[in-house]
């Protein structure tokens, strides 16, 4: 069960209007490496995870990603709230405006709609955690690309820098989660075992003393 808190994880206070920048930043809401995909990825993966601590990490990071989606939307909202018709036409925002006016819809910077195919739930915690680590790196790169585009907007940069750092922290925690899952594996069957599906490690080379099925 979730409860909404009327606050952001990190404050967003942007005075300028910049539709062009907003169109780039919207990728971190609905794009391939955005916060919506991250939240859905972790919160969907957690159900079948047998390692309780890892299920908790996926819950906690997934929850934080929901909050990050809110922060990204706050940036987009503030950058576009005072747009004039003239700015809409000049900045190239007109194509987005036709379908969404100044509402915020999850899409990539190139206009591609949010798509669940942008993440996977494989049901194997090793596979899923590798994907999660890669996802955090891809999001970090995206924030770095955005920071280059936002170099003249210090208020935006402050938030993007905060979000970028969280990608690094999450990458670290997922790496540790992977280690926790791997520590529980049978050393003889390290590569041939899905700890969330196989009941016990199959004996590749059965010999006396092997207590697995």
């Amino acid at each position: 069960m979730w409860v909404y808190e009327k606050r952001l994880q990190f404050p967003v206070n942007i005075k300028e209007t910049n539709a062009k920048l907003a169109q780039a930043i919207i990728s971190q809401y609905g794009g391939p490496d955005g916060e919506s995909g991250a939240a859905m990825r972790y919160l969907s993966q957690r159900y079948s995870v047998k390692n309780s601590r890892v299920a908790g990490i996926l819950t906690d990071i997934g929850t934080e990603e929901l909050g990050h989606g809110e922060m990204v939307c706050a940036i987009i909202y503030q950058l576009t709230r005072n747009l004039s018709m003239e700015e809409i036409e000049k900045s190239g925002f007109d194509k987005y405006y036709v379908d969404h006016t100044l509402g915020i819809w999850p899409q990539a910077a190139g206009g591609v709609p949010f798509n669940a195919c942008e993440f996977q739930v494989k049901g194997d915690p090793i596979t899923d955690l590798y994907e999660d680590m890669a996802a955090e790196q891809k999001a970090r790169t995206t924030y770095e690309n955005l920071l280059r585009l936002a170099k003249d907007s210090p208020d935006v940069c402050e938030v993007l820098k905060f979000l970028r750092t969280r990608e690094i922290v999450h990458f670290q925690r997922f790496g540790e989660s992977l280690r926790m899952v791997q520590d529980d594996l049978d050393s003889k069957n390290f590569y041939a075992f899905n700890p969330d599906f196989d009941r016990s490690a199959p004996c590749v080379d059965p010999k006396p003393g092997c207590n697995k099925d």
């Binding site: 069960m1 409860v3 957690r46 159900y47 309780s52 601590r53 299920a55 908790g56 990490i57 819950t59 906690d60």
Partner: peptide, 21 residues
């Protein structure tokens, strides 16, 4: 029941099962 209520001794017990699902 949530991450802001944890009273830990010397071991973190928040992300322990069982989970509600």
């Amino acid at each position: 029941l949530n991450r802001y209520q944890v009273n830990s001794g010397n071991k973190w017990a928040w992300n322990m099962g069982p989970w509600p699902w």
